[in-house]
């Protein structure tokens, strides 16, 4: 059957080039984005510090929760020094160790809340977009209802019902975060499912499940990865806001929001009490945003100049 072949049209590089996957390409592009790499390094650093904190932080800097009442007067509100790099708070606790343990809360809430939102959002968005019609109307109006309430107020109400505690915080943030993810996913699917390759799969006799998992999902997931990454930063901010309002993690457990709330009264005299956890929030949220931004560029199939 080689009569039909026409080697003129054959690819320019007949020599076997290594097969590159799209995810491999994306990784190569991400690595050249300096800001995104910076974000990744910062996130990895924070995660490592938070995970290993038990092994070294209390020995070096003291307990993040227990206060030394006998020496409270002598050790409280010390300015940053070699012994206490971020200073100490009103109860004589080291601010650095509290920021480190606060990272655990922030990262847990950020990741788990986003995971919950993403899972609900993916299912809802897929239902709305793939089946359309009545499903679309139900899911999207439900999303509108969720979005119509002031977000923070809604979370506060949910926490008031469920009670405080870190797991309730990420559950509440996670459950309330799905509408925007569902919307992003729905619009992506709507554009992806118009592609001929989806029709091609249908013409081949592929089942709905196969079309969704093999054709639509892999081509829509990029936008969700980007959105979810940025959403982590948003969830961290929400947790901080909740703790600041006294609805989040219960004292004496450290959380960046609680620390800012504790520190606000000393803003004029001991600014590091508020500044340090504030900087921790700023850099971490920024790192997730930079990573999300880099992922968006890296996952764009059209930018295949790698």
């Amino acid at each position: 059957m080689s009569t039909a072949t026409d080697k003129k049209e054959a690819p320019q590089s007949q020599a076997a080039a290594p097969a590159r996957t799209l995810w491999g390409d994306a990784f190569a592009r991400l690595r050249r984005n300096k800001l995104a790499v910076l974000g990744v390094i910062w996130i990895i650093f924070i995660v490592l510090v938070a995970l290993t904190a038990d092994l070294w932080a209390p020995q070096l800097l003291g307990s993040p929760t227990e206060m030394d009442t006998t020496q409270a007067a002598a050790t409280s509100k010390l300015p940053p020094s070699l012994e206490h790099p971020f200073g100490t708070d009103a109860l004589g606790r080291d601010v650095l160790v509290r920021v480190i343990y606060g990272a655990r809360v922030s990262l847990t809430v950020g990741l788990l809340a986003t995971a919950i939102s993403t899972m609900i959002g993916l299912v809802m968005g897929a239902l709305a977009a793939y089946y359309g019609g009545l499903w679309d109307t139900i899911v999207m109006r439900l999303a509108d209802i969720f979005l119509a309430f002031p977000y923070t107020l809604f979370v506060v109400v949910m926490l008031a019902v469920m009670g405080q505690g870190i797991q309730n915080v990420f559950i509440a943030i996670g459950i309330l975060g799905w509408p925007s993810i569902a919307r992003v996913f729905r619009s992506t699917i709507l554009s992806v499912k118009e592609n001929d390759y989806v029709d091609a799969a249908r013409a081949l006799g592929a089942s709905d499940v196969r079309i969704i998992t093999r054709h639509i999902f892999p081509n829509s997931v990029a936008s969700i990865v980007v959105y979810a990454t940025m959403n982590i930063g948003g969830a961290i901010l929400t947790e901080a806001a909740l703790s600041f309002l006294g609805m989040g993690v219960t004292p004496p457990n450290p959380s960046w929001g609680i620390m800012i709330q504790d520190g606000q009264q000393y803003l004029a005299t001991q600014p590091w009490l508020m500044l340090m956890p504030g900087l921790a929030i700023l850099t971490t949220v920024l790192a997730f945003t930079l990573l999300g931004d880099g992922l968006r560029d890296a996952l764009d199939v059209k930018m295949k100049d790698a």
Binding site: A19, L22, D196, Y197, D199, A201, R210, R214, N219
Partner: peptide, 26 residues
């Protein structure tokens, strides 16, 4: 069915081996 647009009718996330073997898998 053979489609008009050769750019839109192949799933960009699948290798051509996967694309061609898909009907046989289904």
């Amino acid at each position: 069915f053979i489609f008009q647009d050769p750019y839109a009718s192949l799933n960009p996330r699948m290798t051509i081996g996967e694309i061609i073997s898909e009907p046989m898998v289904i």
